[in-house]
């Protein structure tokens, strides 16, 4: 069997080594990556539920994710997690620590966890994260969580890949929440008020319920607001019930498929930009002189590459 064939078979059989390698191949733009992703099982991918877990730093996303893993495992599901964190803009490196709270699940062969740095990609992290999700689905995961800090645009773009997105908030995080309210309305299918054991939680729940009322679905229902105490596991089973119900609804209405088609378009654009980036950098480096204005030069270079920008 070819090297790539072995990896695909390994992924389908749920082998951790093969899954890990496959994700790296896509992340690193390996020459064999297209052949790999082409061989992934479309049916498994279509059936899988992709959940976005986002929110401000410290809201308890990792703690909640660990509890969601526990709850889904209790229900017999094989689950994948893609934990995305920003890369340092200065060094290009990243410190990926989300796993710490999930380590108790490391020896469970039906829990697949991958940490991913945003790597300052031109098109955001969507391309690589999307491929990781599909590789996990191919390996038999019927639920995949994407955990990301809801701060920058590229992090928010990641949630575009998710079929359903939960915004996790907590009392005591200050003005961030006010600032996020507008964005909240657009992306969240579900609002989670975590740290419901802390002072100020009741107030935040009321606030969120009024936010939720402003965004009703077609049946006139408000976006659900769930209260959780993630470090104790409270409210987590109810949250999973909500995910389950919403998933059934978006599958039945066709909204899941429509959303996936839209996300796909965005992802293709991301990949195209990502793949073009090294060629542009090369073309700029190949210029012996760079006289004149940067904008003019950039247009010239693109035109020479056959990519003339619009007038």
């Amino acid at each position: 069997m070819t090297e790539i064939g072995k990896i695909i078979t390994g992924v389908a059989q749920g082998e951790a080594r093969a899954i890990g390698r496959a994700i790296s191949m896509v992340e690193n733009h390996a020459a064999s990556a297209p052949a790999l992703v082409e061989a992934l099982d479309g049916q498994r991918i279509a059936a899988c539920l992709v959940l976005g877990i986002t929110g401000p730093p410290g809201a308890g996303k990792s703690t909640l994710t660990a509890r969601l893993i526990q709850e889904y495992r209790r229900r017999g599901r094989r689950i994948g997690i893609v934990a995305v964190d920003p890369s340092s803009p200065l060094s290009g490196g990243a410190l990926l620590g989300d796993r710490v709270r999930m380590m108790t699940h490391t020896l469970d062969p039906d829990v697949v966890i991958r940490s991913m740095a945003s790597r300052g990609r031109l098109g955001g992290v969507c391309g690589a994260a999307g491929a990781a999700v599909r590789i996990m689905a191919h390996s038999g995961c019927t639920v995949v969580l994407i955990e990301t800090v809801g701060v920058g645009q590229s992090e928010m773009d990641v949630v575009g890949i998710a079929d359903l997105t939960a915004m996790v908030l907590a009392p005591g995080l200050g003005d961030d929440i006010q600032a996020m309210k507008a964005g909240l309305l657009e992306v969240a299918d579900l609002l989670v008020v975590n740290k419901a054991d802390l002072r100020g939680a009741d107030r935040l729940i009321l606030d969120m319920e009024s936010v939720a009322l402003q965004r009703q679905d077609k049946q006139g229902r408000a976006v659900p607001v769930c209260a959780t105490v993630a470090d104790q596991g409270q409210g987590v089973a109810a949250l999973v019930d909500h995910f389950h119900r919403l998933h059934r609804e978006i599958e039945a209405s066709g909204a899941k498929e429509r959303h996936r088609r839209r996300a796909r378009r965005a992802e293709v654009a991301d990949w195209a930009m990502e793949l073009l980036r090294p060629r542009i950098i090369e073309a700029v480096a190949a210029r012996s002189t760079l006289d004149g204005d940067a904008l003019v030069l950039a247009r010239q270079i693109l035109t020479e590459m056959g990519l003339a920008p619009r007038k």
Partner: peptide, 22 residues
């Protein structure tokens, strides 16, 4: 890119995490 796994881990946990994270 540094994956940090925290304290008091079993050798098997560290190895499994290393493989998943490639």
């Amino acid at each position: 890119e540094v994956i940090y796994t925290g304290i008091r881990r079993l050798p098997a946990e560290i190895a499994a995490a290393a493989v998943q994270e490639d």
